[in-house]
Simulated scan of single mutants.
Amino acid sequence: MSTADVDNRYTLREFVEQTRQRDRGQGIFEMESARLLEVNLNGMVWTKMGSMVSYLGNIKFEREGVFEKGLGGFLKKAVTGEGAKLTKASGQGRLYLADYGKKVQILKLENESIVVNGNDILAFEPTIEWDIKMMKRVSSMLAGGLFQVNLQGTGLVAITTHYEPLTLVVTPDNPVYTDPNATVAWSGTLEPNLRTDVSLKTFFGRGSGESFQMEFRGNGFVVIQPYEEFYHAEA
């Protein structure tokens, strides 16, 4: 390869061509790259607060209102501080979402339910019913708390993971135990319990997260990531 050929690879024109946006015709949720989600918006979509990195067109952003889930939801938030992580994006245009360079996974629910760690939700369609809850038993052990987003219905959901996710199948004969900081999502058929391992607490010290595990029993699946994510309380 000649010097001229090498130099042509690094021109500004070549850079723009290699990195420019491309419409792949994949629908409302489109993988622009492994870590960047394009939303072809014509209406409304729910997004994680702070995940917008760019948009084209006429799009309006609104933080989830205190009465969005009714008076009961308002009273719950007043007590727990829940529900501070979602933004409603409305209008027409292209919206680009990302979350600290984490990998994006698109899931299609078909009258199904899934529970996602609040740190790992990126976006979902308005056809999906949702609720935000705090896992109080786990949150008491973790700084900043641990919120979960319960999603149910039919539509698209985008979640994020640090590196490649791994899905573990749960059966009545094979329960699954996970580190809360590495747990991304689980099927709506499962209800996790907090399990304390006294031997691990003794070995690692009382402050070790290793001594607390999420226990999943029944029929379903659990998604984990090869990374321990630590949680920070939202203002």
Score class of each variant (00 low, 15 high):
71 L>Y: 10
71 L>I: 14
71 L>M: 14
72 G>M: 10
73 G>T: 14
74 F>W: 13
74 F>V: 00
75 L>F: 15
76 K>V: 06
77 K>F: 02
77 K>M: 12
77 K>Y: 06
78 A>Q: 15
78 A>M: 14
80 T>L: 15
80 T>W: 10
82 E>D: 14
82 E>P: 01
83 G>Y: 13
84 A>W: 03
85 K>N: 15
86 L>D: 07
86 L>R: 13
87 T>Q: 11
87 T>E: 13
89 A>K: 09
90 S>E: 11
91 G>W: 09
91 G>C: 10
94 R>S: 14
94 R>D: 09
94 R>M: 09
94 R>I: 12
94 R>K: 15
95 L>M: 08
96 Y>P: 04
99 D>M: 01
99 D>W: 03
100 Y>A: 12
101 G>P: 09
101 G>T: 06
101 G>N: 03
101 G>M: 05
102 K>Q: 13
102 K>A: 11
102 K>L: 08
104 V>N: 03
105 Q>C: 02
105 Q>Y: 05
106 I>L: 07
106 I>F: 03
106 I>K: 08
107 L>I: 15
108 K>P: 00
108 K>E: 03
109 L>K: 03
109 L>D: 00
110 E>G: 04
110 E>R: 11
111 N>V: 00
111 N>P: 05
111 N>R: 07
112 E>K: 12
112 E>G: 04
113 S>W: 01
113 S>R: 00
115 V>C: 15
116 V>H: 02
116 V>C: 07
117 N>K: 10
118 G>S: 13
119 N>V: 07
121 I>F: 12
121 I>D: 02
122 L>M: 06
124 F>S: 05
124 F>W: 07
125 E>F: 08
125 E>I: 05
125 E>M: 13
125 E>Q: 14
126 P>D: 02
127 T>Y: 01
127 T>Q: 12
128 I>Q: 00
128 I>N: 01
129 E>T: 11
130 W>D: 10
132 I>W: 00
134 M>C: 02
136 K>N: 07
136 K>F: 07
136 K>S: 13
137 R>F: 04
137 R>Q: 11
137 R>H: 04
139 S>H: 04
140 S>A: 13
140 S>P: 02
141 M>F: 06
141 M>R: 08
142 L>V: 10
142 L>G: 01
142 L>D: 08
144 G>M: 02
145 G>Q: 11
145 G>C: 10
146 L>R: 07
147 F>R: 08
148 Q>G: 13
150 N>M: 07
150 N>F: 05
151 L>Y: 10
152 Q>N: 13
152 Q>I: 00
153 G>C: 08
154 T>C: 01
156 L>Y: 06
156 L>I: 00
157 V>N: 10
158 A>V: 05
160 T>C: 14
161 T>A: 10
162 H>G: 09
162 H>Q: 07
162 H>W: 08
163 Y>H: 13
164 E>W: 03
164 E>P: 06
164 E>G: 03
